[in-house]
Design a protein around this nucleic acid. Structure first.
Length: 548
RNA sequence: GACUCAUUGGUCAAGUGGUCAAGACGCCACCCUCUCACGGUGGAAUCAGGGGUUCGACUCCCCUAUGGGUUACCA
């Protein structure tokens, strides 16, 4: 069999050799020995969800912690799935969450010496490698039509054997050069298939950085490496690109575990070393009481847009992701509350190999702590930016009241036991919305033990004694007095001792005042809020409540 | 169906043959307290089931169950 001739017939235009690419175009990188080279290789569907971000984080940490390279390669080998503007979306969403690429596709084009970074532009490289395989009898053209393949599959399942293109089912595996030529002359379309030497019984061993030592079945399928249109399949592109781009660690979802044998065999056939594989567990979602993998189609709410829309601060999402990424992160954070994430030593060994359920409660809790470390000025800025993109109707009002907003956000945030009220923009705005007359409303109920008439009476008394210049304790002393004069215990403890002697206690009275001023039964310190609102607004709110 | 990965409280999880089975979120109670938060103290709650191996199993082996994944000229 003249494989050389076959390869020339199939790839007449390919003159380069693999060694040309290996030695001259993409030489071994000049990095520290421990430096890791990782890549994010999304397909340009334009949709990134939390799971993608989770994986990207692993790549990023690995590379940047070792002074290596983190690159973006776009796997656009399936033209059916291309979406306009997807690449920009990918880059900007990752950047929003603090992930920056050192190399590869970027907004301006591409940077780095190992490109092109769009797989669709690497055709010649793949063909060169494919040609080499044909030349060595390890790849061949296959002219089978989809219908023929479908038929084989049917037969195979009837016979209860594994489906696929292998062994005696691989019809075109041993076509002669003449037969190939005849098909070609007939203008038939063809794919290039890899000729596997594996068996169904064979196994091999490989170490996965997350899953440990694996013993797995060999590949025995003659899988397609070049499609009819000359574009490679993922399997082939992965091997060629990650080798030539000198990637050291391949981080990908566990759905790739089952195709690892294919990749392994191609690597070995080409005489190349495999990268270190890191198969991550999927992020799961609770669905009707059952855990389920996060899905692009079913869970749009878990797209990154979800967090952006609600206005979660990117560092809160990062922080949350890190806690599920590395099990020792939380403890490290407790021990090092002010340390930069870069100081945490991320390790693959500490990664879980079972799927974690997304936990919104936890995110919210983390977010509170994260926002507490950010100044009120910055949060205000963040809120403003968010409103411009997601809630334009409040931008104006925020802009007009910047100083007040900053003060509102600051209430109770200082001292040993700062408040942790803020979680995400939508919630933050809602939290301070009472300040703005156009958003103020009575959302809660007055205390049950105080009827409407009583409310008015108390508020009148409050208004009469109100002095905007009172300090906090003077102010509250007055409320205690009003309480006493109206049959409410000035101290809650007195009420607890003899509840029958009072209508209620000072807490009820201050609740009435709070309701009139902020429209809610609970809020941060009312005196401080009044100082921010100013006397006019305070008085008018109370008057309104009285006249209601 | 075949092949494969996984399985510790509601959730995230530590744990690598001998622990009263950490910690965090959530939940509950109490304390602090003018409300709510914050903070503090305490509490309920877990090794999927069954067989082995062993003096001893959450830890090792087998089976079952459940869940995930793959089974394309998608990635």
């Amino acid at each position: 069999m003249d494989y050389k001739k076959l390869s020339e017939i199939l790839f007449p235009n390919i003159k380069e050799s693999i060694s040309y690419y290996e030695n001259e175009v993409f030489p071994v990188r000049n990095l520290k020995p421990e430096a890791k080279v990782t890549r994010l290789a999304p397909s340009p569907t334009g949709f990134i969800h939390l799971g993608n971000l989770y994986g990207a984080f692993v790549d990023e940490r690995l590379a940047h912690q070792s002074e290596g390279v983190f690159m973006l390669r776009i796997e656009d080998t399936d033209d059916k799935r291309k979406v306009e503007g997807a690449v920009e979306t990918i880059i900007s969403s990752l950047e929003y969450f603090g992930l920056k690429f050192d190399e590869g596709v970027c907004i301006e084009g591409e940077i780095g010496n190992y490109g092109p970074y769009f797989q669709s532009n690497r055709g010649k490289i793949y063909q060169c490698v494919a040609k080499y395989l044909v030349e060595n009898g390890r790849a061949y053209p296959c002219f089978c039509t989809e219908e023929e393949l479908e038929e084989t599959r049917k037969k195979q399942s009837e016979e209860n054997v594994n489906t696929g293109y292998y062994g005696k089912w691989a019809k075109d595996r041993n076509l002669t050069v003449e037969e190939v030529q005849a098909h070609l002359d007939n203008n038939e379309e063809f794919v290039i298939r890899f000729k596997s030497y594996g068996t169904e019984e064979g196994t091999f061993e490989i170490d996965d950085a997350i899953r440990g030592h694996l013993v797995i079945h060999e590949n025995y399928q003659d899988i397609v490496i070049l499609k009819t249109n000359g574009i490679p399949t993922y399997h082939f592109a992965h091997v060629v690109d990650d080798h030539l781009m000198r990637v050291t660690h391949v981080v990908r979802g566990e759905e790739w575990l089952s195709t690892l044998p294919i990749h392994y065999e191609i690597f070995k056939t080409l005489g190349w070393n495999t990268p270190i594989y890191c198969h991550t567990a999927h992020l799961m979602k609770m669905d009707n009481g059952a855990k389920r993998k996060l899905s692009k189609r079913k869970d749009p709410e878990l797209g990154l847009g979800f967090y952006m829309d609600l206005g979660y601060h990117p560092s809160a999402v990062r922080e949350y992701l890190l806690t599920i990424l590395n099990s020792n992160y939380e403890e490290w954070r407790i021990a090092n509350p002010d340390s930069l994430i870069d100081n945490f030593e991320f390790t693959l060994e500490k990664m879980s190999n079972s799927g974690a359920l997304f936990d919104l409660d936890k995110l919210n809790n983390i977010s509170k702590d994260v926002l507490l470390k950010i100044s009120a000025e910055e949060i205000c800025e963040f809120l403003l930016n968010w409103s411009e993109g997601h809630k334009t109707e409040i931008t104006q009002v925020l802009n007009d009241n910047k100083d007040a907003v900053i003060k509102l956000l600051s209430v109770g945030r200082n001292g040993d036991k700062p408040r942790k009220d803020l979680m995400y923009c939508e919630q933050i705005f809602e939290f301070i919305s009472y300040f703005f007359d156009e958003y103020f409303s009575i959302v809660d109920k007055y205390p049950e033990n105080v009827n409407d008439e009583e409310v008015k009476k108390l508020l009148k008394a409050y208004l009469n004694t109100y002095d905007h210049n009172d300090d906090q304790s003077q102010w509250f002393d007055k409320i205690r007095v009003i309480s006493g004069e109206n049959g409410y215990a000035a101290k809650p403890k007195d009420y607890k001792k003899n509840p029958e002697m009072y209508k209620g206690h000072v807490g009820d009275v201050s609740s009435v005042i709070r309701m009139a001023i902020v429209g809610r039964a609970s809020s941060p310190d009312v005196w401080e809020l009044q100082q921010i609102m100013g006397e006019t607004k305070v008085r008018s709110r109370i008057e309104k409540a009285i006249n209601n």
